Simulated scan of single mutants.
Amino acid sequence: MAGPGRRHVVIATAQARRRDLDAAAQTATTAMDIAATVESGRCTTLLSDLAAELEPHRAARPVSAVLERLTGDGT
C-alpha cells in the first residue's frame, strides 16, 4: 500500500492511540477501501498492525465493525 492508503493506516493508528475511536474507525474504513484496490503483502501487514491497535477497543461499535471487516469473522 502506498501513498494515501498507508497514510490513512498511520492516521487511524494515531487516532486509536488517542482513543478517538470514531475517527479511527472512519479512517480505517477509508484505508481498507484503498487497500481493496491493490494486492500487497505490505498492505496486509499494515492492516494487521492496525487491527492489533484497535483490538483493545473492540467493545466500541464502530471499532467492532472495522475489526469484523478486517478479520472476516463476526467475533
Rank of each mutant, 00 (worst) to 15 (best):
I34L: 13
A16T: 01
L50S: 03
A35E: 06
A16H: 02
G74M: 12
T71G: 11
G74T: 14
E39S: 15
A12G: 04
T45N: 14
H57Q: 13
L21N: 01
R58F: 00
V10A: 12
T13N: 06
R6K: 08
R7V: 06
L21Q: 02
R69N: 11
A24C: 09
G5F: 00
S64H: 12
A24E: 03
T75Y: 11
A36W: 05
A31D: 04
T27Y: 01
L67A: 00
Q26H: 13
R18T: 11
A35T: 04
G72R: 04
A14D: 11
R61P: 01
T75Q: 12
G3Y: 08
D33P: 01
A60C: 06
R7Q: 06
V9K: 00
G3N: 11
G74C: 11
Q26D: 13
C43F: 07
V66H: 01
Q15D: 08
L21D: 00
A51E: 07
A59G: 10
G41S: 15
R42E: 13
V38P: 05
R58Y: 03
C43N: 10
A28N: 04
E53R: 05
A16V: 03
S48I: 13
R7I: 03
A60G: 06
A31Q: 03
T29L: 06
V38S: 13
S64P: 07
A25R: 01
P62H: 01
A36H: 11
